[in-house]
């Protein structure tokens, strides 16, 4: 019953957890494929949500959405989610499932996990990890963003599961209920790609999401020269941190999307998708270039060059728009 668990190092927690969970149940699927099929790629500028009094900028779908959309889209896949009001119930239920030999996914805070390097321990409540075993009060954890497995004591795990605040995990745990023998790629891939393309292109009327969101942030950057220099620096730093540090980052997600497009192209025998994969890689490179410009300016503490940085972002937005336009017609 207890199949040994195969840890694999992923680029992002949520997609990593999902693909590891499925692979453990004999459904071989890569991390980028999960990301692509769940249409995980996105961009959102959310000035109404403040983190350390700076606006939130996201480069992918909100937490929990990837795993939820994925399980909804794939026929025959059921993932059970459980939340708990009482931490004791959450612990009991987790132990119950582990004793049955189940591998269990958890949503946790990062701050309370001692195995994270101190500089990375922020109050981010939507981290995902897998628990594959327990010895007494020590839990064996496969955290997809780490290259190796780790262990956590019950006390710390409970704190991490029941951390309070924005996106509070409320002890959320999840496990597979039923699993399909195979995935209908012919149907799902074009559907998922079209969804991503529509959501991020100008077809999406929301001014804060997708390509429109990027242009809005570019405007905001341009106006930073009139702001308090400290705020301007923090704002730019925040953009880059959201992009590169938290989760996998904006460029990282574009690279992962490229891996998905390439794999999709191979499955469907579509050479166009392979070309788009290279386009997505190039876009990822441009995002990193943008991050480099912003970080460099921050370090020099200059206030010249906001215009250049804004222009760079517009350039990236233009490239993405082009890609989405071509992808909308894929599979038609």
């Amino acid at each position: 019953m207890n199949k040994p668990f195969d840890h694999s190092h992923a680029a992002h927690c949520e997609t990593g957890v999902t693909s590891a969970l499925l692979r453990h149940h004999q459904l071989d699927i890569s991390e980028p494929m999960v990301f692509g099929l769940a249409s995980g790629l996105a961009y959102a500028y959310l000035p109404m949500i403040k983190i350390n009094s700076l606006p939130l900028i996201s480069y992918r779908m909100p937490p929990r959405m990837i795993i939820k959309i994925f399980s909804r889209r794939v026929d025959g896949l059921t993932i059970n989610f459980e939340k708990f009001r009482n931490p004791k119930d959450g612990l009991r239920r987790l132990n119950e499932k582990l004793d049955q030999g189940e591998v269990v996914g958890l949503q946790t805070s990062v701050f309370f996990l001692p195995y994270f390097p101190p500089d990375m321990r922020f109050h981010f409540n939507a981290h995902n990890l897998l628990i594959y075993g327990r010895e007494g009060d020590t839990y064996q954890i496969s955290d997809p963003v780490f290259s190796h497995v780790v262990e956590v004591r019950e006390k710390d795990l409970q704190k991490a599961r029941f951390a309070k605040g924005a996106l509070a995990p409320k002890g959320m745990m999840y496990y597979l209920d039923s699993i399909p023998e195979k995935i209908d790629y012919e149907y799902l891939i074009p559907k998922a790609i079209r969804f991503t393309a529509k959501m991020n292109s100008r077809k999406n009327p929301l001014p804060i999401s997708g390509v429109r969101g990027m242009h809005r942030v570019a405007n905001k950057i341009k106006k930073l020269k009139n702001e308090d220099p400290r705020y301007a620096r923090l704002f730019l730093g925040q953009i880059v941190r959201m992009q590169e540090e938290i989760g996998t980052g904006g460029a990282g997600f574009r690279y992962m999307f490229a891996a998905f497009l390439q794999e999709a192209g191979e499955i469907l025998g579509n050479e166009e998708l392979n070309e788009e994969a290279h386009a997505a890689m190039a876009i990822g490179d441009e995002w990193r270039e943008f991050a480099l410009l912003a970080a460099r300016m921050n370090k020099q503490r200059g206030d010249q060059g906001f215009g250049d940085i804004a222009d760079k972002l517009r350039e990236v937005a233009g490239l993405e728009e082009g890609m989405y336009k071509r992808l909308v017609d894929i599979g038609k």
Binding site: A11, P117, D119, M120, Q262
Partner: peptide
Amino acid sequence: ALAGETKTIYALDESGKV
């Protein structure tokens, strides 16, 4: 900040595979 840990990232190899 990573204190000796590593991160995974997707990149191209010589044959153009991601």
